[in-house]
Design a protein around this nucleic acid. Sequence first.
DNA 1: GTGTATATCTCGGGG
DNA 2: CCCCGAGGTATACAC
Lengths: 219, 219
Amino acid sequence: MRLVIARCSVDYSGRLAAHLPPANRLLMVKADGCVAVHADGGAYKPLMWMTAPNRLVEREGSWVVTNPKGETLTIAVEEILSDTSWPLGADPGLEKDGVEAHLQALLAANCERIAAGLRLVRREYPTDVGPVDLLCRAPDGTTLAVEIKRRGEIDGVEQLSRYLDFLNRDPMLRPVRGVFVAQQVRPQARVLAADRGIRWLEVDYDELRGIESSEQRLF
Amino acid sequence: MRLVIARCSVDYSGRLAAHLPPANRLLMVKADGCVAVHADGGAYKPLMWMTAPNRLVEREGSWVVTNPKGETLTIAVEEILSDTSWPLGADPGLEKDGVEAHLQALLAANCERIAAGLRLVRREYPTDVGPVDLLCRAPDGTTLAVEIKRRGEIDGVEQLSRYLDFLNRDPMLRPVRGVFVAQQVRPQARVLAADRGIRWLEVDYDELRGIESSEQRLF
DNA sequence: GTGTATATCTCGGGG
DNA sequence: CCCCGAGGTATACAC
């Protein structure tokens, strides 16, 4: 990890063109070669960057970073205030809990939470346009396709619509209905779901996790 | 901009829960208060972070960052290898060229480029499922909904299809036809557009900009 | 490699 | 403030 504090101006040319006038900034060069130019504000996103793999050519007063796609990051270094390097070593890595995969697992184990009497047929049921999160059977014998999101937006409804199109071509499954499940379903997603005849449902992650742990306590 | 190189373990609790075992990392604290924990790899994204506004409480061997939403970032600092601060000042900011907004502005001002005699009714015309980029009137009185992308992919065609569905329910507008405009329209998007009765069109950004600047030269 | 789906997405604009 | 769409999205994973 190399950290350079410098007065510089920066230009990017590639998927778009962008320019930064001269100012003091942090230049971060990581062990994998990626370069980032940070200002003293603005969340974690750098003003400009170049991801690995790339090639950094450092000449007097000018760094040029190029990648195989032909994109170029040019840093005109006017004055270096500090230039330090720290070998950090490989990171042991991140452990996460509470992402969509976990929500899916909880709902798969408790799918009667989606509708009474629902039985799980399969998780990640494959179709030609991607896997359906949950495929379930209702007590009346009809099939339900369930799409799960943390935040239910319009894209998710489109995704479920595509699955339903393809599932309903299978005479063995037809008719298949859709349910859109999320911790929060946005207004436009509700409108589109209603319009497509898709039911939507908001679920509470903590409550689901609570059920799960109380059930485990029984065994 | 404060840069701390330290051996630390980190925990985040909020939208999800996450944990980092002890290792040497960079802790970056920006002037606006945002905190980021970087490893020596993995593009520009930090392993963990907390955006502004937040509150950083630094006690011996432990930093606790909390935000108004009740999220918490806890950094257990085991050993500090370096701790430096650099006042960078406000950044003059980024100038971008070639984003969708420019393309939309150029086409709004030159919509006869989309079809002869076209007249702009409104940019960002609202529907229940989102705003249409351009709504135009053709010489024959019919309405055109225009969706603009830098890269025309299948989801852009889906987006325009949704708008057309809803616009065509309005007796005052009906019938509304669609035009999908992009610098590059991908093969799959062409097929889908054709299937939906949507016309597609590739435009050259530099050429449009050229028209614009030559028009400006006239005044 | 291409395509698809996720993300503590971030960021900016509009109501 | 929330909602929504764009992004040089990045990133992981399946085919």
